[in-house]
Design a protein around this nucleic acid. Structure first.
Lengths: 206, 206
DNA sequence: TAGATTGTTAATCGATTAACAATC
DNA sequence: TAGATTGTTAATCGATTAACAATC
């Protein structure tokens, strides 16, 4: 199984490579990729060896070929259907964020426990009542969810998600979700990130 | 210097402890804290030793005392003034997120290059033109910024921030910012997080 | 060819784990 | 006291770094 950190870096390499390709760059070196992920050339080479794609001495890595290999790794030719629960401020921002259609990630439905939101189209995405979740997830075989509800609701809704077959959750609520070990949870903890920035920047002078 | 990971965990401990305190819990054990941060009791004890606050055998850690020590570490009695640049979807969500005033983090001003937004009050925060940034940052001695602009603008605006004395950036733009080594950048990379969730959840059956 | 990259191997470093004595 | 925690130390593990031969 590919380590989490490697997967994260592969995603970043891909983004950088796409930009490089648009700029007409044909080859990249491991040290260039390393810069993009705050890592080392050796680490980059190890990551890319996992893909079964090797570079060439002097030439480095062929941009187009490498993108192909990473795309295969992430299975990007397939559109991934995702649901979003919690159409609050962050939820709406995420709906906009993924709406542009540049990626292979598609939010096919959003949900909110606020019944007045149900049935309305918010940020180009139809909002459904929580009761509809079961059917929509089953019909579309959705395995991944974005959870952007208040902390107090997060665990109970995560339970519902897991119960209905969701196997991966991107969690924006500041709570540690308790889920079965085969369910993957990725936490995006903005307050914690902010605390880090403040800690490492406060008191520093120009 | 305290390692980044320890700082991150301390922030999470604090959140958990505050909830515990409200629930009337007086003591916690290292293994309980470990659960909240996907870590180990030994790691927790090492983290807390950095604070100079030790637990007691059998009793574990005194919740109120521990909160005090972590608060001192993060200097939470002091209100930290922060600015936000980029009042788009994510920017507005963040303004709401930090508006509730539960934390010691306060967004004192927001900025947008869109001149039509300047002067308006958006999500309870006054939006200024980019030209006003210099003065507001200097007058309020702001050291920390949230960057929620499109990727194409991120680097040029980061340059402006650094030039005006900002020493920590919470970056939501999917770009690797180039900043001097004494400026701390924390990246929140939602697309990458989402790719991770999909990778580790797709194909998994119920 | 010379130079700069590559993959590979060995050495180092740091973090985690395990074992244990001390404490309430 | 017995039991469950604590901090401390030594052992282990994994990841990173450094050195090197191979390649275009």
């Amino acid at each position: 199984m590919t380590p989490e950190k490697t997967v994260a870096r592969l995603s970043l390499y891909r983004r950088f490579l796409k930009i490089a390709k648009e700029d007409g760059v044909d080859n990249v070196y491991s040290h260039q990729l390393a810069e993009m992920v705050r890592s080392t050339p050796a680490q980059v080479r190890r990551d890319l060896m996992i893909l079964g794609y090797n570079g060439s001495p002097q030439k480095g890595y062929d941009v187009a070929e490498l993108i192909k290999h990473i795309d295969t790794f992430f299975n990007t030719e397939k559109i991934i259907d995702v649901i979003l629960v919690g159409v609050g401020n962050i939820g709406r921002a995420l709906l906009s964020y993924f709406r542009d259609g540049k990626s292979h990630i598609k939010i096919i439905a959003s949900f909110d426990k606020d019944e007045t939101k149900a049935g309305r189209v918010i940020n180009n995405s139809r909002c459904y009542a929580m009761d509809d979740l079961k059917n929509i997830v089953a019909e579309n075989n959705v395995k991944t969810a974005i959870l952007s509800v208040p902390a107090t609701d997060a665990q109970s809704i995560a339970d519902i998600l897991v119960e209905n077959g969701i196997r991966g959750i991107l969690n924006f609520a500041p709570t540690r979700l308790k889920v079965p070990s085969d369910v993957f949870v990725e936490d995006v903890d903005i307050t914690m990130n902010m605390e880090k920035v403040i800690y490492f920047s406060a008191g520093k002078k120009k």
